[in-house]
Simulated assay, not measured.
Amino acid sequence: MRIRVSDHETTVTVRGTRGPAVLLVHSLGLDRRMWDPVLDRLAEGRRVFAYDVRGHGSAADAPLPFTMAATAADLVAVLDALELDAAHVAGLSLGGAIAQTAAVAAPGRFASLTLMAAPDRPVPVAFEERARLAETGGMTPLIAPTLARWFTPEALEAETEGVRYARECVASFDPAAWASIWRGYAGLDVYERLRDFPAPALALAGDADASIPVEGMAAIAARIGGGGAKFEVVPGAPHIQTLERPEAVTDALGRFLPAEIDIP
């Protein structure tokens, strides 16, 4: 469905007709299709929604500059447009950073929080370098290093469907938008601010993640809520977990997220 979100429109993919609401937030450079490999199984007993973050996919024409505050407000606006008082929110990488920013601002809208390969602190020097590379050389020089951060060497060599989709997304990205998003990402400000988060939380790390190691995700999990978030490692998963290990990711999410179960 197409919805209005503050200063732009976006598209929401919907799966499931009953059960708890789950909102999925994708990573930088991709779009809501990143979640396609997990949607059908995740929607068993749940209503699942995946939307395009501003600057991406069907929301590529959203006004710049990109800021974390604006994307957090967008997340809440998506909940409003879907008439959801609260949802189980899961975000991967930038999507997890957006979810954390929204959770700091509006914790009551979260039935739970799931972070997948998502930082709670930016890396300003690296983020600025990626912004400048796009501005000076366009997207072509960024394709190979980006895919190397996102996928395992085996997936890259096999040229999987997920790799082809991601390459297409990065190659077609607007360089000015890419630069603005990375600079906005550098404004992430959630470190130590979710100590009092009141809802359940889960952190998923991939043991083949070249961007955020298992130890880093474990430390992030420990900083969420009074007792820390539940923590799991997805075997063999790289940074973009859903495109290379969708079954294991769905299993982990299914163990954590409630569902409406048919009782004979």
Rank of each mutant, 00 (worst) to 15 (best):
C169R: 08
A158H: 11
Y191Q: 13
P153G: 12
T136M: 11
P145E: 04
A148K: 13
A148Q: 15
V170T: 06
V170E: 00
W178E: 06
P141L: 14
E157D: 15
C169M: 15
A144L: 14
A177T: 15
I181L: 04
W150R: 04
P153H: 12
R183T: 00
G187T: 02
E157N: 12
R149N: 11
R149F: 11
G138R: 07
T136C: 12
T136L: 14
P145N: 10
R149S: 09
F173M: 13
C169S: 06
L147H: 10
E157M: 11
C169T: 03
T152H: 04
S180V: 07
E159F: 09
E157H: 13
A176K: 10
P175A: 03
A186Y: 00
P145I: 08
E154M: 11
R183N: 03
A131W: 03
R164G: 03
G137T: 07
A166F: 08
R183E: 02
G162M: 04
W178R: 06
A144D: 15
L156F: 12
Y185Q: 10
E168L: 12
A131L: 04
E128V: 05
F151D: 04
A131S: 02
T152N: 06
R167N: 10
W178D: 07
V190E: 00
W150M: 09
E129F: 14
G137I: 10
I181D: 02
R193T: 04
W182H: 12
F127N: 13
A148C: 13
E159P: 08
G184H: 01
A158D: 13
T146S: 14
R149Q: 14
Y165I: 11
T152V: 05
L142I: 07
A148E: 15
L147I: 09
T152A: 01
E159L: 11
T136D: 12
M139C: 09
A171S: 11
V170Q: 02
L133R: 14
C169F: 08
E154P: 09
E129K: 15
G187P: 01
T152Q: 06
R130W: 03
L156D: 04
E157F: 06
V163I: 06
M139L: 13
P145A: 12
D189R: 00
R132A: 13
E159C: 12
A166M: 09
T160M: 02
L188M: 00
R183H: 00
T136E: 15
D189A: 07
E157L: 11
A158R: 14
A176Y: 07
V170K: 03
P141H: 12
W150V: 06
V190D: 02
L142K: 03
E154D: 15
L188P: 00
M139N: 10
P153T: 07
E161K: 11
E168S: 15
A186N: 01
W178N: 10
D189I: 03
Y165H: 10
E161N: 07
Y185G: 06
S180L: 04
R132C: 07
D174N: 13
Y185K: 05
R130D: 01
S172N: 14
G137V: 08
D189C: 02
G137N: 07
I143E: 09
P145Y: 05
V163P: 02
E192T: 08
A155T: 08
E168F: 14
G138D: 08
R183A: 00
A131P: 03
R164F: 05
L142H: 04
P175G: 04
A144F: 13
A176P: 07
A148G: 12
L156M: 13
E159I: 09
A176L: 09
T152W: 05
A179H: 03
R164S: 09
S180I: 03
